[in-house]
Amino acid sequence: MSAAVKSLHVAVLMGGWSSEREVSLTSGEGVAKALEALGHRVTRIDMDRDVALRLHETKPDIVFNALHGTPGEDGTVQGMLDLMGLKYTHSGLATSVIAIDKQLTKQALVPHGVRMPGGFVVASESLYADDPLPRPFVLKPVNEGSSVGVAIVTDEGNYGRPIARDAKGPWQEFDELLAEPFIRGRELTVAVLRDKPLAVTELKPKSGFYDYDAKYTDGLTTHICPAQIPADVAAAAMELAALAHRLLGCKGTSRSDFRWDDEKGVEGLYLLEVNTQPGMTPLSLVPEQARHVGLSYERLVEHILEDALEGGEAAR
C-alpha cells in the first residue's frame, strides 16, 4: 500500500440492474480483491433499491464505484453519494450526466475542436417510414455504454429498407436513438488515468463489429497494444482523450473510443464517446493499458482510490 493511503474501509458498489450488470459484478470483484491485497477492509455491495440504507449501515471511509451503465454511471448514484456526504471514485454528478449522453458530450467537446461524427436523435417509430441518413449509418441509444444496442444499417443488411417493424434491433427497445453516419476504418481506444493518457489500443473483432459480446467474450476480439498506427495518429488520439477527460471534468480513469478512417490520416480520427466508468474485468482495456505502462492491476486500483481521496467532494 502507498504511504499516502492508510488502511481504509472501502465499500465496492457493483452489480445493480443495468444491462451491464454481469460485467459490473466481475469488475467489482476484481477491484475488491485488489483492495484487500493492498491492505484495505472491503465491503462488497451488490446494489439494490436499498443501497442508501446499506451504505448508511456500512459507514465506509470511501466508496469504490464499480457500476456500469445506469444508474451507476449517469449521475444518479453520484448524486445520492453526494447527499450522503460520502467520497467516491471516478467522476462526479455533472460529469456523469453529460458523458453518459452522447449528444450532450458532443455539445461539450465539439466546440473545443474535438472531431466527432455528425448526426441527430430520431424517434424509433420514424425508422419504419424512412432512413434518417444515407446508408451505411449507425443507430445507437443516446445513453447506454459498452456498445449496448448499437446497429449498423447497410444496403446489404437484413433489416429491410426502410427498417421493418419485426427486424430485431435497438428500435424495439428504445423510443429514441442517435443516428450517425458510419465511419469506415478501425477501432481505437485510449485510457486516461489521473489526466494522463496511457496508450492506444486497436480492437479487431474476429467477426462483425466491436459490440457488447465482442467486448466481454474471451477470444472474440484481438487487442493490439500499442496500436500499430502512424505516430501522429497515436499522438492525436492520446491528446484528444486527455482533452476530453479534462473538458468533461472526469476523475480517476476514463476511456475514450475512436473510429479512425486510415485513408485520411489524422483527419480521419473521430471520437465516438467517453466512458467514465470503464470496465475493470480481465478482458478490460484500462487494466491492459496500465500493464503496458508498467502498472499492475493493484496499483491501478490504488491510483483511482488516491485520486478520489485527493479530490473529495469539493472537486466534484
Score class of each variant (00 low, 15 high):
E36F: 13
T76I: 03
D74F: 04
G15C: 03
Q103G: 14
Q78P: 02
T95M: 07
M80V: 09
K106T: 11
P60I: 15
P111M: 04
R135E: 14
V31E: 04
V63H: 05
G119I: 02
D82M: 09
L86Y: 00
P136I: 03
D50K: 12
S124G: 11
D74W: 01
V23L: 03
V10C: 01
K102L: 10
I100F: 01
V31T: 09
V63F: 07
A34F: 00
L127P: 04
H56D: 13
S27T: 07
K87P: 14
V97K: 02
S124N: 07
N65T: 05
D50I: 11
E73D: 06
G15D: 02
S91W: 04
P117D: 06
L139H: 03
G118N: 08
G119N: 02
T95Q: 02
S7P: 12
R49H: 14
E144R: 09
Q103S: 09
R49I: 11
E144W: 05
P134I: 05
V114Y: 03
G16T: 00
L25E: 01
E57P: 08
G72M: 00
G16E: 00
D48Q: 10
D101R: 01
M80Y: 04
G85Y: 05
T70Q: 07
R44A: 12
A52G: 10
I98F: 02
V23K: 00
M14Q: 11
G30R: 13
A34S: 15
D50Y: 08
D48V: 12
D74V: 06
L8I: 10
G39V: 12
A94S: 09
L109R: 07
V122I: 05
T58S: 15
K140S: 14
